[in-house]
Design a protein around this nucleic acid. Structure first.
Length: 480
RNA sequence: GGGAUCGUCGUCUAGCUUGGUAUGAUACUAGUCUGGGGGACUAGUGGUCGCAGGUUCAAAUCCUGCCGAUCCCA
């Protein structure tokens, strides 16, 4: 009894959407807030975010990027300065119309993104080529009113993210920056979260409103839908002109600057849950797990307890000396079986079980979360835990990659495309580049162009829709 | 944007048709026995029925509005 109400009550395979929501809530990553579309991050969820944040911060710093802070309110007059940008975001902006009892003249937007505010300030700060490049990243939240059904981490009206905004004196340097950032994103997501991504460009239709072009990384989820994992935009001079981000070059001629902007959000956490989780709950990659190893002591008498706990403390110290994050589950009132299930729900990568029998044999039992494997480890080999965690991290990426590959297909017949799209997946299909075809495909199959992979930008074939000559093979999929 | 369904202790749920202040499970608290895969027993705590208003002697139940959630279609 009780099993159903404590654990996940549906299987990942049969009801993916319900499964996802239950994992988020029951693993205590997040909870719903009293306002539609808003969620609350709990400590277990927030530490995953903190872990990602610290990795990104290190990599950004190595690339000469520093952190700053921007306020949340942006006057309408600023937001509207770049026309297309404004038109794109306007339908989902939250507006502040009053300050206290007084109506404000120029309505204030709760930032849907900060380009317009940042660049107003950049225009003040940048005078000379000596001020460039200017590279600032902002960790904050963005607000975009979601009318559609919301999902924790994947679609919420407020989300945690970082938005980076850089300014360069040359076009080449800005384009290079866009690329560098996307590489940082890809490496981090694959190495930390063990999720494989495909990088490339967005189509004209799908690019960031106001950008010259958008580069993106996309991943496929186990239900066959695509998730945008992060974007890095080349803004050209589209913003520097209306916002007058200008600098005097070495020859004392004034030029408009070249800009980039880029961001990843807590969607990454949602992706991690979907890709790695199973019917027992969350499965965390060791690198981002708040607790990497949980020790469950087993005993049934006071003398046993004493002996076991002594051993357990020793193991903990030894593991911590190699910077492993260890937790001892010393809750006295719960049975070992309950604890096993509890930590599996929370996704802790490795569990150590140790009881009187183990002490007698000078060993412990190791249980790996991601593949449910249970093995014995001789006590004096305890330092191998570090290696095992590394191996888990590696295998999780490998498994995810294999799964992604199984869900990716080459396709050249439109009828087959339509038919198979019902089941989802990444479809490599040729495209002529015309938006009419892109629109028709979206209308008839629900799939859009997720990404045009960099290595498939110059592949010549026939458009899947109109059969006219095509010059690229994008990935089509239904998205989140 | 159009349509449908729903909202009762923390969670799931009975009651709603035929108005009379709420059922059970789980969780939680305490104790005893237990303890290597969600343990048992006993005793407790907890809800005024999403919110606001209306009808009525009386509203979880009927009516109106709002808020929120889920699903389908575009």
């Amino acid at each position: 009894m009780g099993r159903e109400s404590v654990g996940i009550s549906v299987s990942k395979k049969e009801d993916f959407s319900e499964w996802y929501t239950q994992v988020v809530l029951k693993a205590k990553l997040a909870d719903y807030a009293p306002v539609k579309g808003l969620i609350v991050l709990r400590p277990d969820g927030y530490s995953i975010w903190e872990s990602l944040k610290s990795t990104f911060d290190k990599k950004f710093a190595q690339n000469g990027i520093r952190n700053g802070f921007l306020p949340v309110l942006i006057p309408e007059s600023l937001l509207g300065k770049e026309k297309k940008h404004f038109a794109g975001f306007n339908p989902e902006v939250f507006w502040v119309t009053h300050s206290g009892d007084n109506e404000v003249g120029d309505r204030l937007a709760l930032r849907p993104t900060s380009e317009t505010l940042a660049y107003t300030l950049y225009a003040k700060w940048i005078k000379s080529w000596r001020d460039l490049p200017l590279k600032i990243n902002f960790w904050n939240t963005a607000l975009r009113a979601e009318i559609k059904a919301t999902k924790p981490f994947l679609r919420t009206s407020e989300f945690l993210w970082q938005e980076g905004h850089t300014v360069h004196s040359t076009e080449e340097e800005a384009r290079e920056e866009v690329k560098k950032i996307l590489e940082i994103y890809k490496n981090t997501v694959e190495e930390e979260l063990a999720i494989p991504v495909v990088i490339g460009k967005k189509s004209e239709k799908e690019k960031f409103v106001g950008a010259v072009y958008t580069t993106t990384m996309e991943s496929i989820m186990p239900d066959g839908k695509a998730l945008q994992m992060g974007t890095s935009h080349f803004l050209g001079q589209n913003f520097s002109k209306p916002f007058e981000v200008k600098f005097a070059d070495r020859d004392n001629v004034e030029h408009f600057a070249w800009q980039t902007s880029w961001g990843v959000s807590w969607r990454l956490i949602g992706a991690m849950i979907m890709v790695h989780g199973d019917d027992k709950g969350l499965v965390l990659p060791p690198k981002v797990a708040p607790i990497q190893v949980v020790i469950v002591p087993i005993y049934n008498s006071d003398e046993d307890k004493l002996r076991v706990m002594q051993k357990v403390e020793g193991i903990k110290e030894e593991l911590e000396s190699t910077s492993i994050r260890v937790h001892i589950d010393d809750r006295n009132e719960l049975s070992p079986g309950y604890k096993f299930n509890d930590w599996e729900m929370k996704g802790v990568p490795l569990r150590i079980e140790i009881g009187p029998k183990d002490i007698q044999q000078q060993k412990v039992v190791l249980a790996k979360r991601y593949n449910k494997e249970k093995i014995d480890l001789i006590l004096k080999d305890i330092e191998k835990v570090d290696l095992i965690l590394k191996e888990i991290q590696k295998n999780m990426l490998k498994n995810a990659r294999e799964q992604a590959e199984r869900n990716t297909i080459e396709i050249s017949e439109y009828t087959e495309f339509k038919e198979k799209m019902e089941k989802g997946g990444f479809f490599n299909a040729a495209w002529c580049g015309k938006q009419v075809c892109e629109d028709k495909i979206k209308e008839e199959t629900g799939a859009d162009i997720r990404v045009i992979p960099f290595d498939r930008e110059k592949r010549y074939s026939k458009c899947i829709y109109c059969k006219e000559p095509s010059s690229m093979i994008p990935i089509f999929a239904r998205g989140y």
